[in-house]
Design a protein around this nucleic acid. Sequence first.
DNA 1: GTCTATATACGGATAGAC
DNA 2: GTCTATCCGTATATAGAC
Lengths: 210, 210
Amino acid sequence: MKDEQPQIDPGISTEEKIKEAARRVFTRKGYAATRTRDIAEESGYNIALINYYFRSKEKLFEIIMLANMQLFLHSVLDIVNDRETTLHRKIELLIEHYIDMLIKNPGLPVFVLNEINSDPLKLVNRLGFIEKHPDAYIIKQWKELAATGVIAPINPVHFVVNILSMTIFPFVASPLLRNRTGMTQEEFNQLMQERKKLIPMWISEMILKK
Amino acid sequence: MKDEQPQIDPGISTEEKIKEAARRVFTRKGYAATRTRDIAEESGYNIALINYYFRSKEKLFEIIMLANMQLFLHSVLDIVNDRETTLHRKIELLIEHYIDMLIKNPGLPVFVLNEINSDPLKLVNRLGFIEKHPDAYIIKQWKELAATGVIAPINPVHFVVNILSMTIFPFVASPLLRNRTGMTQEEFNQLMQERKKLIPMWISEMILKK
DNA sequence: GTCTATATACGGATAGAC
DNA sequence: GTCTATCCGTATATAGAC
């Protein structure tokens, strides 16, 4: 919408500023706990203007939710479907990518997982646009490797779950973790940087048959 | 409160019934999305009675939150501080315990993590009562093992994070996971049962120096 | 203790001026 | 496009009858 105007810098249009403010507040507090007033305050504008641009809190939320889900899920498809990189390298890249993205957006996983949890039915509609790649190239690679017999005879879902768990969960549990260990934010980020190397190593050990 | 009355079966007193209903609703929808009306409906009583017993939605929530945090954190202390079991066995028991508890209360982690996230400051007060065991017996065991030199030279926080990640995260991501794989609830639970054996195995491999 | 009826506040959304 | 003022539904909490 509104792209018919010759915008000088579209990144800082009022509409974009409100959207950015909304993304921050929604992501931090979730849909229900966010008041339109909070977004108004955060953006520097007022309630009326938010509804002028987005009609309602709910419509604005849908836009943010979609963007956050994209950020959370869609960004990995390029990696997963690249035909040049090996399986092992793909896993490395995936983990690096997620950790970098989550250091920039630490609140994202809790937000997405919480909203999905409070209304799992909406998930189906929202994920429709991602359904495109049902069998990614990475799956083919996995099957090829499995055919050679070097992979541990365990349901592969376990390994996917392990990669995502070890990568994403620390961000989800970060406040608790920091509270228990006395780590600072900076130390936590450092820990996650270390994990970029460690997790692929651990995963390799799990995958390879002994 | 109210423990001065000779209650025949305190487990099914009205107060307990409301508390149980509140626990279910709050845990499913979170504080902000829960209306006192929902709790009234779920309990079979009405709003007035809820306020009669608990004064306000917020006070009731604090009680539930505390109980859920206890369930989430406190229950492991017995395991962690037992002086009879080996380190490896402790890890096994811990994982078993969590998986059993989370199969019964699948919504618990998202609830706790979300509420903590939306207000990390309250965490400090709420966790005060748990602060008791700063150096659990398990830590002593870890240090003893580390002194023998058989443990990989990596920050031990990584291993704690890995155990919790691989155990808890699947429950957090369960709706997403089920949506992507087409698993049923029953199949998911079965997967988690398998992980009771697998996770300790993986962790051992990670810990032991190669 | 438990209910119905109601006061009061709060939040989302719009009207209308500029 | 952006603001102020306001409307109106909904949610919490209480008063008061039983």
